[in-house]
């Protein structure tokens, strides 16, 4: 399959060709790939793409998935509408 047509990260529209090129350029750990390509930085927070990227990277470098280590997920795990945080007493609550 044409790597330019395989989507690795749907939120940020990253293809397998982008991933291969980044690995070629020397971005060989998940933390760097995440920031360089924005894989896993969109609304799904890497739920799908990061695991795939980790497996792909591990195979490419001949390492185990544990060795290429997974980035930490940040709260909230799913995007939350800002309006849920509107409060009349916000000043008292936040000092």
């Amino acid at each position: 399959m044409d790597p330019r047509k395989v989507i690795v990260c749907r939120c940020e529209n990253v293809t397998l060709a982008d991933l291969e090129e980044a690995i070629e350029k020397g971005y060989r750990d998940l933390e760097s790939l995440k920031r360089y390509l924005r894989i896993g930085m969109g609304p799904c927070q890497g739920m799908h793409c990061l695991l795939f990227t980790a497996k792909y990277l591990a195979r490419k470098l001949g390492k185990s998935v544990e060795e290429v280590y997974l980035p930490r997920n940040r709260v909230p795990l799913n995007p939350v509408p800002a309006r849920y945080f509107i409060r009349r007493d916000w000043r008292e609550m936040t000092g």
Partner: peptide, 18 residues
């Protein structure tokens, strides 16, 4: 959110991601 919706009411409809 409360500091900035005073300036941008539309901010209430954005989604906080991280």
């Amino acid at each position: 959110v409360n500091v900035w919706i005073r300036y941008f009411p539309w901010l209430a409809y954005t989604n906080i991601m991280r």
